[in-house]
Design a protein around this nucleic acid. Structure first.
Length: 168
DNA sequence: TAAGTGCGTCGTT
DNA sequence: AACGACGCACTTA
């Protein structure tokens, strides 16, 4: 299913993300590169109308989420890169509302495998569409931060934007 | 509180 | 067989 991915920048209040689209939808979202400017997506190529529509949804959903609110509509997401288990986890993550959190073990229980907390953590780490698939809302037990592929600073930042404060 | 050890558990490589 | 964005039960400062 790995088709040509089209890369398009998304300007947000948190920097410029880069969205990757496959023929089935948003397939990947990269955090702002930090590196000086932004990635140089080939804007020369004409962007198919369908992808333009998806991208508009991505941009809006991303900005709304980053503002600490729940997006009304998400772009279609192509999660075919994941294993069946990972896809089940990502699906469960979509049910965590903005401003709420769950522990890795709670997510594990939610997919019917209460002992798979650690595997859930690995699946979160493999999440190709952070922010929109809110892996940042998954914490370790006792409201501890846990890990984050994009760096813990991002996790703290995203949680703060949703008004979530972690007790020391 | 904080930090460290050990072990059970489970999906992925 | 080895390795983790885990969790729990411990010790030890």
């Amino acid at each position: 299913m790995v088709e040509n991915l089209m890369r398009i920048p998304v300007t947000t209040s948190a920097g410029v993300f880069v969205a990757h689209y496959s023929a089935h939808g948003l397939a990947r979202l990269e955090f702002p590169n930090g590196k000086a400017a932004n990635e140089p997506p080939a804007l020369q190529e004409p962007v198919p109308a369908q992808i333009q529509r998806w991208h508009k949804l991505t941009r809006e959903a991303l900005n709304v989420t980053l503002a600490g609110h729940t997006a009304r509509e998400l772009p279609p997401m192509d999660t075919s890169s994941g294993t069946p288990f990972q896809q089940r986890v990502w699906e469960a993550l979509l049910e965590i509302q903005s401003g709420k959190t769950r522990s890795y073990s709670q997510v594990a229980a939610a997919i019917g495998q209460p002992k798979a907390a650690r595997a859930v953590g690995a699946a979160c780490g493999a999440n190709p569409i952070p922010v929109l698939i809110p892996c940042h809302r998954v914490l370790a037990a006792h409201n501890r931060l846990g890990g984050f592929g994009g760096g813990l600073d991002w996790k703290r930042n995203l949680l703060a934007r949703e008004g979530i404060v972690l007790e020391a």
